[in-house]
Amino acid sequence: MSDYRRVLLEVKNLKKYFPLRHGFLGRGAGTVRAVDGVNLHILQGETLGLVGESGSGKTTAGRTILRAFNPTEGEIIFHLQDGPATDIAKLGSTELRAFRRHAQMIFQDPYSSLNPRMTVRDIIAEPLVAGGVAQGDEVDDRVREIARRCQLSLEHLRRYPHAFSGGQRQRIGIARALVVQPQFVVCDEPVSALDVSIQAQILNLLMDMQKEFGLTYLFVAHDLSVVEHVSDRVAVMYLGRLVEVAPTADLFYQPLHPYTEALMSAIPALDPDEVMKPVILEGEIPSPANPPSGCPFHPRCPYAQDVCKQDMPPLKEYKPGRFAACHFADQLSLKGALKS
């Protein structure tokens, strides 16, 4: 990866805790640490894949970065192309609303993310109208333009979401996110609710749009093959923390973190001769309300030593551009999904 490219987004020590409430007046039943100290940066025009299993906090991280949730702690600094650096974690609600046009989101569920009571035209126009980006005829012009690019026809605009299939709905969602021409888009598992045949269409559309508008994506997903297809770099999340960040190819050839290795081994192989011995993880992902001591992965890690139970390994750069949070990242030789 070229490091000459501009950094668009810097996330520093991002935390999002949800209070757990029980019983009368809900006093102190602990907190769920959904996102627990995430540091990452995303370069202008790249796609950063964010992967992890269910409950790892990747969706929460994506949503917190856009302030769909208010972060508990941390900074979310945008270096927009033509403007000063903005830490949106500190913005008040009016300034935040004004900022929204630069950062948008594409949702996982194409059914629940479109208001069934609005026409497609109104849905797509919402960011323009609500954010005060455009008025009058310009709204319709821009809606028509983005709808065309997202392969929706004009007559679709009069219809309601119930008239559309999952793939078409997802295109509506994409049109809504892109109509304000944002610089940054969080794609929250945009294809995981779709049929495999439709997935490719949507992914291609996303990649075309990226090329056309110079978009920067944070691509949240649990499907590694999808992530490999679209991402320039990949960040692996486990229990609210990043355990590894690396350029896509490097990560898939040789992961540095045992958790990444386990994830890789779970990708179904297309070639039946190429049998990869799966690394079976024991147990479930621990509860983020009660994370284990030391390295959060140690109860399930096949390589765990005593030190892992006590000390939390920090996310360190082991090779240029390759970060991992493991005490033995430079000693283990782990297998990736791809063979060199």
Partner: peptide
């Protein structure tokens, strides 16, 4: 918690607009 309400917020809708356009009709 519905996604379309989150989407409206991310689209830059004010609380009043979210209530009037999304919550009440629903």
């Amino acid at each position: 918690e519905e996604d379309f309400v989150v989407a409206a917020r991310i689209a830059g809708s004010s609380d009043a607009r979210i209530i009037a356009r999304h919550l009440l009709p629903s």
